[in-house]
């Protein structure tokens, strides 16, 4: 395993970061959307190619590392979660609200990761503004070369959604 000067692995994603993200997803969905979410599996394979209808993407960077977080949902799952956030039935969620809601979800999850990374390193990490990708069955493949990655697959009420974590320490 390769390590940087701070003793952090440069070819694997830190388990604490993964744990923070997993808890953040569960807490955001549970606390704000009242939706119980469970982690179904963790997939560290390039052969795994999850697709979604709507994805929220945020970049994270600091003095000691950089990465990207992508939350991908099917449209029914996104409508369910955003509907719960607003206290509305999923069928009443318009496209604009769905995009805004998924952007806010990925923003809050990334905020948790940023806090954890900043407090661990004693330096401030920064987030990009969230970007939203919308289109039936799209695949997110914009992963920097040689950058460690993981897919966290979550399940809620018969639907699955995926958090793709790409992060490397310098």
């Amino acid at each position: 395993m390769m390590m940087n000067a701070a003793g952090q692995s440069t070819n694997a994603i830190d388990a604490k970061l993964v744990n923070t993200l997993m808890k953040a997803v569960m807490e955001v969905c549970g606390t704000m959307a009242g939706t119980q979410v469970t982690l179904k599996e963790v997939v560290p394979s390039l052969d795994y190619k999850p697709t979604g209808d709507i994805s929220g993407v945020i970049g994270i960077s600091g003095d000691y590392g950089e990465g990207m977080l992508t939350l991908s949902f099917t449209e029914p799952m996104a409508a369910l979660l955003v509907g719960r956030l607003l206290g509305m039935p999923p069928e009443e969620i318009c496209s604009e609200d769905m995009c805004d809601g998924i952007g806010e979800l990925v923003n809050i999850v990334s905020g948790r990761a940023k806090t954890s990374l900043s407090e661990d390193s004693g330096t401030l990490y920064r987030l990009s503004l969230p970007s939203i990708i919308k289109g039936p069955g799209h695949e997110i493949t914009g992963r920097p070369k040689n950058c460690p990655f993981l897919f966290l697959v979550f399940e809620a009420e018969g639907h699955s959604f995926v958090l793709q974590v790409t992060f490397r320490y310098f």
């Binding site: 704000m32 955003v82 604009e96 609200d97 805004d100 923003n107």
Partner: peptide
């Protein structure tokens, strides 16, 4: 800047 957050807080 999130319309959703403004809606949640408005409630």
């Amino acid at each position: 800047d999130s319309r959703i957050m403004r809606k949640i807080m408005s409630g």
